[in-house]
Simulated assay, not measured.
Amino acid sequence: MPEVPPIGARIAKYLDVPDAAKGPAIPAGKGYRTERLGAGLYMVTDNAYQSMFLVYESGVVVVDAPPSYAAHIKTAIAEVTGKPITHLVYSHAHADHIGGAAMLGGRPIIVAHAETKRLLARSNDRNRPLPTVTFTDGYQLKVGSQVLELQSRRAAHQPGNLFIYAPAQKALMHVDVVYPGWMMWRRFGLAEDVPAYFDAVEAVKSYDFAKFVGGHVARVGSREDVVVQAEFMADLKAAALKALQTVKVGAEVNPLDLGNPWAVYDTYIDRVAASCVNALTPKWKRRLAAFDVYIWDQCYAMEQSLRID
């Protein structure tokens, strides 16, 4: 049995979060903090979710409105400028990142990928108003002297998930793909396409950025954070592939269950995942925060993708 307990096994305490994964504390009683990323560009976070806003000559562009602190976004902006919110960019359609859009008030121009609009129309959620400007490939949002370059690539996390790049500030936002200092959220951040997820991380590396906003965790990321996650993912893929090649189908199954293919493959897949977890634990359990929380999920997702994608 691996050192890290399997899914469903409750433990007294998870591994401590490494200091390198932590960000600045949220001021007492405030519920959020603001961090400057460059000229007129700021991140807002509750140290679990992240959004941005960009100040230009006559207004403000907000990027994402997580419902956990969306009510504070206007307050955060007011600490920097008295200008109104004129635009709202949706990184993608998921409610945990834009479900606070209606809390911003006013009638901002909402910009998103056409796939995001399609998914939101299906959801029919009044907390996530439909975009008013959509595109299918790339879009340059130029407001005054400020620019955000919006681009969609092959869908990994969700169709329409955007790369949001501020070239002047050398800051990149791409949500639910890279988790600086942390293990990815369960099953590659619930990616809809695991091979495309690998491509997305490589795409992040292709941008000329100094600061990275991933939509989650407590701090801004760096290029090194992206490199480290890519290294972990390469190790994960190699460990899962080796396990698939060496673990035998049908081994350790009760002979009375050999006529039950579901039971045979359940045992096989569990043993593949255990082998994968064992291979990765010595190197990574202290390097990535929450390694022990989601390493089983990642190994299950990786073996499945290698078998069927």
Score class of each variant (00 low, 15 high):
residue 1 M to F: 05
residue 5 P to H: 06
residue 5 P to N: 10
residue 6 P to V: 07
residue 10 R to S: 14
residue 12 A to V: 08
residue 13 K to V: 02
residue 18 P to G: 02
residue 19 D to A: 14
residue 24 P to E: 13
residue 26 I to G: 04
residue 32 Y to D: 09
residue 33 R to P: 00
residue 33 R to I: 11
residue 46 D to H: 05
residue 47 N to C: 11
residue 50 Q to I: 01
residue 50 Q to A: 08
residue 59 G to T: 07
residue 67 P to K: 11
residue 74 K to H: 03
residue 74 K to L: 15
residue 77 I to P: 00
residue 78 A to D: 06
residue 95 A to Q: 12
residue 97 H to Q: 08
residue 103 M to E: 15
residue 106 G to L: 03
residue 118 R to P: 03
residue 130 L to S: 05
residue 130 L to M: 06
residue 132 T to Q: 06
residue 134 T to R: 03
residue 137 D to P: 01
residue 137 D to M: 01
residue 141 L to G: 11
residue 144 G to P: 04
residue 148 L to Q: 05
residue 151 Q to N: 13
residue 153 R to I: 01
residue 156 A to V: 14
residue 157 H to Y: 14
residue 158 Q to G: 04
residue 182 W to C: 03
residue 185 W to T: 10
residue 187 R to A: 11
residue 194 V to Y: 12
residue 194 V to Q: 05
residue 196 A to L: 05
residue 199 D to E: 15
residue 202 E to D: 15
residue 213 V to Q: 00
residue 215 G to K: 05
residue 222 S to H: 07
residue 222 S to A: 05
residue 225 D to P: 04
residue 225 D to I: 10
residue 229 Q to T: 10
residue 233 M to F: 13
residue 233 M to R: 04
residue 236 L to G: 08
residue 240 A to Q: 08
residue 243 A to D: 08
residue 244 L to I: 15
residue 251 A to L: 10
residue 258 L to P: 00
residue 260 N to D: 15
residue 262 W to G: 04
residue 262 W to C: 05
residue 265 Y to W: 09
residue 265 Y to D: 02
residue 266 D to N: 13
residue 268 Y to K: 05
residue 295 I to S: 04
residue 306 L to V: 09
